[in-house]
Amino acid sequence: MAKLVQKVFFILISRYLYNFLSWFRKLWYHMQGMYVGHNTYLPSIKITWPHQVVIGDNCSLEQGIYFKFDGIWKQGPSIIIKNNVFIGAGCEFNIRKEIVIGDNSLIASGCKFIDHDHGTSLSSPMHKQQGPEKAILIGNDVWLGCNVVVLKGVEIADGVIVAAGAVVTKDIPPYEIWAGIPAKKISQRN
């Protein structure tokens, strides 16, 4: 009897409560200018400027994602996630310029995207200096392994795989496999 009660409780929580909370979050963020597509479940996330974020249809997001538009209010969106994208737990989008993630991409847990730097001049403390800002573009059908870091100005073309823990500092051509710090080509997809 206890197992049946546990099963019923689990079904109620997973099907109804989580869906209601997702619906409520979507409504709340929609009122603040964020767009979340159809059949996209919205878990508990952190977000600084909701109007800067667009999430497409049929996306799967896990808990603890941080959408940080790093700056003062400006017209959006700057964080654009297209359709059928998976984003794992604990990913961070630290964006000033723009990031676009293409359709059917897989972003594993702990990935970080940073599209800006601090200045390095000796004239004032580094934390007060604005550095260069360049958009990040991720193509369609891209797979980034756990804890990949993608830095400013990088364009990752369609069909690329980046191994876990890599730091991507330069553009990656289509259908290549990269790994390491800094990331380098290790293979080609067949």
Rank of each mutant, 00 (worst) to 15 (best):
V8L: 15
G131Y: 11
H51C: 07
P50L: 06
S78M: 03
Q129E: 14
N140C: 11
I72S: 13
D70R: 08
V85C: 05
Y66P: 00
T40V: 06
N19L: 09
T48D: 14
G165M: 09
H127P: 00
I72E: 15
F24E: 12
T40N: 04
I65D: 02
P132S: 11
I79M: 09
K7D: 10
A89P: 00
L61H: 02
Q75T: 13
K170S: 12
I156E: 05
K152V: 03
K128H: 14
N147F: 11
V85F: 06
P43Y: 01
V154P: 02
K68V: 08
I47V: 15
H38V: 12
S44L: 13
N19C: 08
L106F: 13
D158Q: 03
F67N: 01
I99A: 03
A157S: 15
A164D: 02
N190W: 04
E98Y: 00
V142S: 06
E98C: 08
I114Y: 07
W49C: 02
N147I: 01
Y41F: 15
L27K: 15
I65C: 02
Y175H: 13
S123F: 09
V167A: 08
G159A: 09
I45K: 01
I156G: 02
S109H: 14
K74S: 13
I136W: 05
I161V: 15
S22I: 07
T40Y: 08
Y66S: 11
L61A: 06
E133F: 03
F24T: 10
N83K: 13
F69R: 01
Q129H: 12
E155H: 12
N39V: 00
I181Q: 01
H51G: 01
Q129F: 10
I47Q: 07
A2F: 13
K152I: 03
N83M: 03
L122D: 12
I99W: 02
F86G: 05
A163Y: 03
E133W: 03
A183L: 00
W73Y: 15
E133V: 13
A164S: 15
K184Q: 09
L4P: 00
V142N: 05
I172M: 04
K185V: 03
D57Y: 04
H127M: 12
D103Q: 07
P77Q: 06
M34A: 13
N83Q: 09
D57Q: 06
D141T: 03
V160G: 06
